[in-house]
Design a protein around this nucleic acid. Structure first.
Lengths: 196, 196
DNA sequence: TCCTTTCTTGACACCATGTCAATTGACATG
DNA sequence: CATGTCAATTGACATGGTGTCAAGAAAGGA
């Protein structure tokens, strides 16, 4: 069977991903992952130097699975700034739930693991570039409202789209995924897109 | 000297508050607090059952010091919904930096200490009532934009004003306190206040 | 003087991460 | 068949932080 040939490393990543998704990032221990992967806790360290490294590898794994990168840059093909803004928020709204568990775990170890913090920051910085590009295209179209400078608008959009905000709106306020996307698109339009 | 009469409990709370403010919530240990308060680590447990309880007591202490509660409800005296919204955001923008360190610490132990989580949630729920009241007054004045239902508007405003967003805008994006207040007031007006 | 309260010291349990050494079982290669 | 290698196992241990416990010390009031 082909499933026999799945490498241990991959089984670990699958286990990690499953647990992180199930538990919504809540306290997933090395021993939990090892158990789920069917190996001893110590054997994890034959594949990953630290818990942080395993978590980071898990984010890459999930990106490979779903082509996360591509999806986020797809908004590039939009003609107008407004379309790009909408497309970017929609893509982000589809991506966030996939990395929510891992993101929370990574965020939780921010203080203790600098590498993990940097890995997450890098991701957020990449996302910020999407915000920046949408705002830039709005300005190019002369469609950026005069309320904020491009940098301020980028800061605000980037902040609005944070993982924590997604968590608060969907999990605490009970918004559906569609409501989240529609709500944030609406916000962004009212704040940043001037009427034609 | 009157400073001799300061109770140990109070000295502990002062030490805790100082460290939490200095360190911006970063890893303040029980032994750090004990050291700063000039007592042994174990003696802390004669006054507070757990770290979580000490942290919660510290939030009450800071509220007593600055009259946090009062300040947040002062926006009640506003005549119009728009004024109330502005006043509330301004008050919140002054309050947040004071509880930032404690808030972060409390948030960091969300997963491990249910009591601490509940204490923080309670605070956020109180803040939400301020959001709700401002939106309600806007609706009363017929000044609430038709883009969102009152509940949705409350959800959004509440989310926009979160500690994490304040952190991201001021610490990561470098906004000053004034920029934060002005920026969020501007956002809230554009999203929720319909022109007269 | 005796009692109580508060604090001290030192030791220890618990839990999670990370390390180390010794061992096993499978498999390839000469 | 003997040998070496690789991945994994087991058990023990260090570290760091929280929380507990027991025995004793200093201060103050009745």
């Amino acid at each position: 069977m082909s499933s026999e040939t799945v490498s241990t490393r991959t089984r670990i990543l699958q286990a990690s991903l499953n647990l992180l998704e199930e538990g919504q990032g809540k306290g997933v221990r090395m021993s939990d992952i090892a158990g789920k992967a069917g190996i001893s806790r110590q054997a994890l360290y034959l594949h990953f130097r630290t818990r942080g490294e395993l978590l980071i590898a898990t984010t890459h794994y999930v990106d490979d699975l779903h082509g996360g990168e591509d999806r986020l840059t797809a908004s590039r093909t939009a003609e107008t700034g407004k379309e790009r803004l909408d497309a970017f928020i929609k893509a982000w709204g589809g991506y966030l739930p996939e990395i929510y568990g891992i993101g929370k775990a990574l965020l939780a170890m921010r203080d203790t693991d600098a590498e993990a913090a940097a890995a997450w920051d890098k991701r957020m910085q990449d996302m910020r570039e999407g915000c920046e590009a949408a705002i830039r295209d709005l300005a190019r179209d002369n469609a950026l409202t005069p309320f904020y400078s491009p940098v301020q608008a980028t800061d605000l959009l980037w902040t609005m789209l944070s993982l924590r905000n997604w968590e608060q709106l969907t999990i605490e306020c009970g918004w559906s995924r569609e409501e989240y996307v529609a709500g944030l698109q609406s916000m962004a339009r009212h704040l940043f897109v001037s009427p034609p």
